[in-house]
Design a protein around this nucleic acid. Structure first.
Length: 480
RNA sequence: GGUCCGGUAGCUCAACUGGAUAGAGCAUCAGCCUUCUAAGCUGACGGUUCCGAGUUCGACUCUCGGCCGGAUCACCA
């Protein structure tokens, strides 16, 4: 089982989520390719103070605004009110401080914060109007996310919601307490002691009985193994800032006696940084996922048109090609780097379509396919004559040797949880093939067995390119 | 401060897990379209693999010690 994406429901998806989604999707596909049955899931963080902040701001300033009335995507609308909350909150804190209130108290007493906290409490008490607003606003967000996921080309077999799993987490924690795995402090809060494992003590349930992040994750993990009893393990695609959290989670599950805890893996990846440093929503430096995809597709479409590649294509084909190339460039850019490493993204320097890029590989595929179509028209056949293997040209030998590496590369990619291995391999293959293509004009070959042989391995290259790229979630065109 | 991750060409990244001359792309410069798509190909330029020891026939890779960058060590998620 591979978990990925797992956003908060208070703001839209951004560049960091793109890396997460492409990574998780790709790792799942890679495991499928080597024979596993894979379930793609995510946990949606649909409850908590963050969504209450958006709710508070919307109830104060929203005037009943909806996605329909405003024409805004649902997630964008809710995100807008999250920003509104932050603005109003800061103003209120400043004002209270100006009136001589100490900062911590001002932060607590700002009216809009009080409203958000009040909503959280009402939510937990199942207050109907609050629940209704929560459902409505989350519904907007889900619809918005859905559109984003569709364009990204990612999918999920099952969605988990924290609002459904945190109670199970609580139960499990109480069971663990009864079993002596956890302990209770005087104030009533429940803890786990991991000092023997070199870690600290961690709180699992607050004194007031409410759950923390860890509680929910315990419940979610257990629920998944109940839902899918056959799964061997879980992969959590989550940023490296949560490494400690998962170390603790896996230890706790192990202590609770779940043998599969040892088969849980945190696919930890580095942040995507901007030239200015980290993305900060408060500073407005967040690169929005929808916007970025749109820009990539527009750029790609423009360049495709300029290069005169669209001749003879229908409007739909042209649009689809732009989509394929733009998203291919973006996905490849994010996946070619080792997941562990943090990476740099410069929004001013748009992602290149030349060189070590997705479109380079797409182009190689399209060119092979064009050649093969022409060969077919001429009635040429594909045939693999092993006798020819001894007299290969160097460029042919390189290509064939490269093709043969594919299965091993898939194993390696799976073992390392690294789509980058596939991405780099596919690039090498395309590069080798282009060299061959440049030195040996295939179609003018007069020896029929040589011609058939070259056509055969050219087709094989096209197939491997298509296959490898599909593991990265990237489609390849028949012409471009 | 403890733990984890990273540091390779001006920039972005590789390097089959210890093998031979450390490779690509971008950028710069010079070439290649009367042969299948030039989003391509060829060449030039570019390296003290952060530093210092050690292990080894052999180290970008392993060990130890430093330096730099990031993350984390919350009754936040």
């Amino acid at each position: 089982m591979v978990e990925y994406s797992s956003p908060n429901t208070n703001k839209p998806l951004h560049l960091g989520h793109l890396r997460n989604n492409f990574l998780g999707y790709s790792v799942a596909e890679i495991y499928k390719a080597i024979g596993y049955t894979v379930h793609k899931v995510q946990i949606i963080n649909d409850r908590g103070i963050h969504i209450c902040k958006s709710m508070a701001a919307w109830s104060l300033f929203g005037n009943g605004e909806t996605p329909d009335s405003s024409g805004l995507k649902g997630d964008k609308l809710v995100g807008k009110y999250y920003v509104e909350f932050d603005k109003a909150y800061k103003q209120q804190v400043k004002k209270l401080e100006g009136d001589g209130m100490p900062t911590p108290q001002a932060e607590r007493d700002a009216p809009i914060m009080k409203l958000a906290v009040d909503m959280l409490q009402k939510w937990e008490a199942k207050d109907q109007p609050t629940l209704a607003m929560w459902k409505t606003m989350n519904g907007w967000v889900y619809k918005g996310f859905e559109a984003t996921y569709t364009r990204m080309g990612v999918d999920f077999e099952k969605l988990y919601y924290e609002s459904d799993t945190y109670l199970l987490g609580k139960e499990e924690v109480l069971k663990g307490l009864a079993a002596g795995v956890f302990f209770k402090k005087d104030d009533g809060s429940i803890w786990v002691d991991l000092t023997a494992d070199g870690l600290d003590q961690k709180v699992l349930l607050r004194a007031d009985g409410t759950s923390v992040y860890m509680t929910q994750d315990i419940g979610t993990a257990i629920l998944r193994f109940r839902d899918f009893p056959k799964i061997e393990g879980q992969v959590y695609t989550v940023g490296n800032e949560q490494e400690y959290h998962f170390k603790v989670l896996f230890l706790i599950l192990d202590k609770l006696g779940y043998a599969w805890a040892k088969k849980c893996f945190h696919l930890s990846y580095g942040m995507v940084d901007l030239p200015s440093g980290k993305m900060k929503s408060r500073e407005g430096t967040v690169v929005d996922a929808d916007d970025l995809m749109e820009e990539m597709v527009e750029d790609a479409s423009e360049q495709t048109l300029e290069l005169g590649k669209t001749e003879g294509m229908s409007e739909n084909e042209v649009a689809d090609l732009g989509e394929m190339i733009g998203l291919g460039a973006l996905k490849y850019f994010l996946l070619k780097v080792d997941p562990k490493k943090r990476m740099l993204f410069d929004p001013n320097e748009s992602i290149s379509l030349q060189g070590h890029t997705g479109p380079f590989i797409q182009y190689t595929h399209a060119r092979i396919r064009a050649m093969l179509r022409k060969a077919e028209e001429r009635g040429a056949v594909q045939a693999f004559d092993p006798a020819l293997l001894s007299g290969l040209e160097p460029s042919e030998r390189d290509v064939i040797a490269r093709i043969n590496q594919y299965p091993a590369k898939l194993q390696e990619a799976a073992r390392e949880y690294s789509p980058a291995v596939v991405a780099n391999y596919v690039y090498e293959l395309a590069k080798d093939y282009n060299q061959f293509y440049q030195t040996i004009p295939v179609l003018i070959e007069s020896d029929p067995s040589k011609l058939a042989f070259r056509l055969a391995f050219s087709q094989m290259v096209a197939t491997v390119l298509r296959s490898g790229m599909s593991l990265l979630g990237i489609r390849v065109p028949e012409r471009m």
